[in-house]
Amino acid sequence: MLLVLFSTVAEATESPHQWQGSASLGLENDSTVIIDELDTVVDEDSASNTVRLGVDYQYNPDDKNEWQFSGNYIVKNFSDSDDFDSALQIYSAAYSHEFERVTLGVRAQVIDSELNHEPFLKLQQLSPYVSFFIGKQWFVNFAIGFNDKRIETDSSRSAQGMQLNVDSYRFIQGINHYLLFSYKSGSENAEDPLFNQLFNQVRIGWVKKIRLFERVNKLRVNWRYLRRNYNDEIHPDIDGFRVDSRRQWEFEWELELNSSFLLGANYRLNEQDSNLGIARYDQHISSVSLEYRF
C-alpha cells in the first residue's frame, strides 16, 4: 500500500527504470516471545538481533502504467530462545494503470518463513485495488485481498480467506506530514473449523518529518485495534466461542545520518485480551537499527 501511495505522489523521473536496495542490522528486546499463528506465548524477556536485506524495482514505460517488484529477506536470532529463531522471505509484484480520475491495480505477494530452521508458514495474497484523490489532500485506497495460508507445523490451522481494506491519507504537508486512517475486515476458513475467524481492525497513524541540527528526523505514531471472533465451533478449553481483542501502540523515530545511512528506534506495546487463557498477554518490544540504502 505504501508503494502505491509513494508512486502516486512521487515526481516523475526521466528514466523508466528505478532501483533501490537496503541492508540493515538491528537489536531488539521482547518482554514476551509470541508466535501468534500457533497461540504460543513464552512470558520471558529475550533479546535478539535482526538482519534485513531488501531490493525494489519500479518500471514506468509511460506516465499511465507502472510495474513494481520487491524482495525482502529478514533473519531474526534470539539469544535465549533459539526455538523462535526465524527467517522470512517476502516477494511482491504489482501493476497499476492510471486513468483520468482513478488508478486501478493489482498486487500479489508471497511470504515464506522458517521457524527454528524448519519450514513454518507459506502465505499467498492477491489484492486488486482502486485508488484516487479527493481534492488535493485526501488519498483513498480500496482493496480486496484473497489469502491462502499454510502452516507447515500444524495443518489444521491452514486457512483461506478474504478481506476488505480501506486506507485513507490526509496530507498536511505532502509526504512530510500526514495522517493515516484505515479499516480492515475479513474472514478465514481453516482446515479445522475451530480456527475459523471473523476479524475487524482499525488503525490511526501520524507521520511527520522535522529538521533538527541539519538532519531530517521522521516521527511516526500508530494505534491499532484488532478483534477476532471464532464463532463456528465451541472451544473445548473454555466451553464457549473464542474472542480475542488486541490493542497496539507503536512509536518510531528515524534519523537520516546522510543520503545512505538511516538510524532508527522503535517501541511497540501489544495488549491482547482473550477468553482463552493461552492467548492473553502483554508484550513490550523495543528495538534500534542501522540501515544502509543504495
Score class of each variant (00 low, 15 high):
P193G: 12
G145H: 02
P236Y: 02
W19S: 08
S260A: 14
V33A: 14
N65F: 02
Q201H: 03
Q124E: 02
R224K: 12
P61D: 06
I175P: 03
E252K: 12
D36Q: 14
R224Y: 03
L115G: 07
I144Q: 12
S286L: 07
E252D: 15
H97E: 08
R107C: 03
V216F: 02
W249D: 05
Q68A: 10
G174Q: 06
L262A: 06
F213K: 15
I34S: 05
L115F: 05
I285W: 00
I278Q: 11
E250H: 07
S245R: 10
Q173K: 07
D30T: 08
F241I: 01
L198K: 09
V51E: 05
R268N: 14
Q68T: 08
I151H: 14
I111W: 00
L219H: 10
N60R: 14
Q248Y: 01
Y59N: 10
D30W: 00
R211Q: 15
G205M: 00
D39Y: 05
L126H: 04
A93P: 01
L290G: 13
R247F: 05
R242P: 08
D85P: 03
S22C: 10
S286Y: 04
E152M: 10
Q18I: 14
T50C: 03
V9N: 05
T103R: 15
I204F: 01
Q125N: 06
E44D: 15
V288P: 01
K76D: 03
S113Y: 02
S96D: 11
D239V: 11
F261L: 13
N222C: 03
V140N: 01
R228I: 12
Q18L: 11
I278D: 11
P236E: 04
V9E: 01
F146G: 11
A143C: 06
R170G: 00
A94I: 07
G21K: 10
D244K: 01
L212K: 13
S79N: 13
V4N: 13
R107K: 13
I35S: 14
S79C: 06
W249T: 11
Q201A: 13
A10M: 11
G105W: 01
S92C: 03
F181D: 00
L3S: 14
S24F: 02
D154F: 04
G186I: 01
N200E: 10
S79R: 05
A12R: 12
K76E: 06
N229H: 04
V51Y: 03
S155F: 08
E188A: 09
E37M: 12
Q109P: 01
H117Y: 09
R247M: 09
L115D: 06
Q18W: 04
K136G: 11
S70A: 14
F142N: 10
Y57S: 03
S127D: 03
D167H: 06
V221S: 11
A143E: 00
H177N: 09
I234D: 05
G240V: 06
E256F: 05
F241D: 06
D154E: 15
Y169Q: 00
A23L: 14
L212N: 11
S86L: 02
S15L: 07
E114S: 12
G174W: 00
H284K: 01
G186Q: 01
L262G: 09
N49V: 12
Y281A: 10
Q248C: 08
L88I: 13
E254F: 02
A12L: 08
W67F: 12
R215H: 15
V41E: 02
T13H: 08
Y183M: 01
S70I: 02
M1D: 10
L123E: 09
S289M: 01
G205Y: 00
P16L: 02
